[in-house]
Design a protein around this nucleic acid. Structure first.
Lengths: 206, 206
DNA sequence: AGGGTAATGTACCTGCCGGTAAATTAGGTT
DNA sequence: AACCTAATTTACCGGCAGGTACATTACCCT
């Protein structure tokens, strides 16, 4: 028999399961609306639980955010490191390998990308610092990639490399956003699509 | 002699001038933090004025936002239309012409781009609808461009075209963001840099 | 059966932010 | 000199979201 709504007491959902539900909902909410606009009440409502439970399980809003951020950041970093080690650094297919790794790492929690790249984090806060650490680590990977690319094509301006790093990040963000709007697409299908697009645009600018 | 702080009365700044100051500050604040996180008090403080004056001059927060959004949107649309008319549609240099136009239109209010592409607008609000209108108009321009590009290189998948549209938008956003972080760069310098980068990456993917 | 503890809800406090009404001052006009 | 109007402030209200204290229920082990 189902527990009647609105009454206190356990609903039979064990803590680890609830925590996972909450993390999933929070990741989506934070990713969609950004930290500042996301509301704890909305996250709780999505899980079918009250605000209080979030605090009891994860602490303050910042702590909940960190609990969403850390796994996403770790998984992304690992995936990207593995992908960049796979192909030799100067190969033109490295970017596509990295993309495929990102899509795979993000599958099931696609909004996590925007948790990492949330611009609405309060400055001088733990979430902002942690996210910045992850971003720096990722950027460093991307920097070696873009630097290799530019060196191979002979453009020595360091500002160019920095701008290319930004562009690459923005490109990935846009692709992930498109992916979120097309939930039926598998990670591999996305990677294949990107390969097609890269090839097509590359041909146009040769 | 300067008017002592904290006292009421005119500071000798005529209304049109103040309105411009407020619009500039608001555009920057909205663009940096997003509509939801931007605070009227912060905007007022930046101008050296109180919150009340914003209301008196522009009405509610949404109205102030619209007052920031409309000029940016109009100017961007005009610039892009002109740029796309300039080069014949199928030319590979059209994207660069458009980019140059965007940078020029955005000079002096670079954060305006993110006013237009603010994800934190309250759904079902006038700002959201207006921004969506501008974005749709811009996207339609971009869509013809990307469709041309893909047709020229033989990729008939309509989803590919849609994804490429997203990617292009994300690319522009990233470049504008980089530009904001490098205030000394002129619009033309940015456009030249983009030309270099396009050429380099195009060569890598030929 | 009964107690301990995990799981959950109700009710409340608090601070920030958008918004408004009324007061205050300075400059141009008669 | 008096006054009207534009420019600006001070002081306040109300709502919403984060956060906390405490009450309540259900499962588990003995």
């Amino acid at each position: 028999m189902t527990t009647p709504q609105g009454r206190a007491g356990t609903k039979g959902v064990p803590r680890p399961r609830r925590e996972q539900q909450i993390l999933a909902a929070a990741t989506e909410e934070f990713g969609r609306h950004g930290y500042a606009s996301a509301s704890l009440a909305a996250i709780a409502a999505r899980v079918g639980v009250t605000k209080t439970l979030l605090h009891q399980y994860f602490g303050a809003k910042q702590d909940l955010f960190l609990a969403c951020l850390n796994p996403v950041g770790d998984q992304l970093l690992d995936a990207m490191r593995a992908a960049m080690a796979e192909g030799d650094a100067t190969a033109a297919r490295t970017p596509l390998l990295v993309l495929r790794a990102i899509f795979s790492a993000l599958d099931g929690r696609r909004e996590g990308w925007f948790v990492l790249y949330d611009a609405s984090l309060p400055a001088d806060s733990e979430p902002a610092r942690t996210a910045a650490r992850y971003r720096t680590a990722i950027d460093q990977l991307a920097a070696t990639g873009t630097a290799d690319l530019l060196r191979a094509t002979g453009s020595p301006d360091p500002l160019d490399a920095d701008a290319l790093k930004y562009a690459w990040r923005g490109l990935v963000s846009a692709l992930v956003r498109w992916w979120i709007n097309h939930p039926d697409q598998s990670p591999d299908a996305m990677a294949d699509r990107c390969a097609r697009l890269f090839a097509a645009t590359g041909r146009a600018f040769d």
